[in-house]
């Protein structure tokens, strides 16, 4: 009994310590963002390359997935909805699934798979190679120099990719709808915009902003948690992926609940 209490207490203290560590890390990032804009010349290149890697290079994959998803939704909807006499709900479903939910989630998943793992592995290797220690010895904040440009890069890429995803998915939906029953693009857009509310766009924007921030922070934190051994790097990378997925889904539920239920 005493052992169990001891183990539980130890675990609680450890969790508390971790939470404090994570929260202080998040607050440090937020604080350093201000400094980033003051000294942006130093880390500007890192930011641009992060956007290039996370955003631009993922554009092809995102577009392909989005067109396929949009087309599938229309395909499934066209098969089921007319049976209930509810064909007009096709646009509502497209908006709800793409704009409110899948757009943000799928983009986040792709970014986790591509960039989250890359950030965690890169920072982990830098710790193993004592590059981070060198920065500290020169008086350069590793958070400002390494983490902030990655966080901003991932957030901006996430927002931009989410927009491209939504556009591509709706285009895919129109294309599939056009194959079944030719409908002019303008009519399609009119019907679509009848179903979109400002809330939907705001929700999509907030989600992509938060998802990007969560992915970058979790991945950076896990990367910097590597101690000495290079074998820790893949472990931390996997942990970064798992935790990013969990946090993204949790935030998705919270934002959806706040935007549409409260």
């Amino acid at each position: 009994m005493q052992k169990i209490s001891f183990a539980l207490g130890k675990q609680a203290l450890l969790s508390y310590g971790k939470s404090i560590s994570v929260f202080s890390f998040v607050f440090e990032i937020i604080y350093e963002i201000k400094n980033f804009f003051l000294q942006r010349k130093i880390t500007r290149l890192i930011l641009i390359r992060q956007i290039l890697f996370t955003g631009f290079e993922a554009l092809g994959l995102i577009t392909f997935v989005a067109i396929a998803v949009g087309g599938i939704i229309i395909l499934e909807g066209s098969a089921i909805l007319p049976d209930f006499g509810q064909s007009k709900l096709l646009y509502t479903i497209l908006v709800i699934i793409i704009l409110r939910e899948l757009g943000g989630l799928l983009t986040a998943f792709i970014i986790i798979a591509r960039s989250g793992t890359a950030i965690a592995a890169e920072l982990g290797n830098m710790v193993v190679n004592q590059e981070v220690e060198s920065l500290v010895s020169f008086g350069i904040s590793p958070v400002l120099y390494l983490v902030v440009p990655r966080v901003l890069g991932v957030v901006l890429s996430m927002i931009a990719l989410n927009i491209y995803f939504n556009v591509a998915a709706l285009a895919g939906g129109w294309f599939m709808a056009y194959l079944f029953a030719p409908i002019p693009l303008l009519d399609f857009l009119n019907k679509l915009f009848s179903e979109i509310s400002v809330n939907d766009i705001a929700s999509s924007f907030i989600k992509s902003l938060l998802f990007g921030f969560v992915i970058a922070v979790v991945s950076s934190y896990q990367g910097l948690q590597v101690s000495f051994a290079s074998t820790e790097v893949p472990q931390r990378t996997i942990k970064a992926v798992v935790l990013s997925l969990i946090w993204v889904i949790l935030f998705d539920i919270i934002i959806t609940a706040i935007m549409y239920l409260v």
Binding site: I48, I51, L52, G55, F56, L59, L156, I159, A160, I163, Y164, V167, N190, F193, S194, I196, S197, V198, I201, F205
Partner: peptide, 22 residues
């Protein structure tokens, strides 16, 4: 990167504007 971000910005601005007008 500039083009990538600006195009996304134009899309979102146009969509929001059209939505508000609609």
């Amino acid at each position: 990167v500039g083009t990538f971000l600006i195009v996304a910005l134009i899309i979102i601005a146009t969509s929001t504007g059209y939505l508000l007008l609609h």
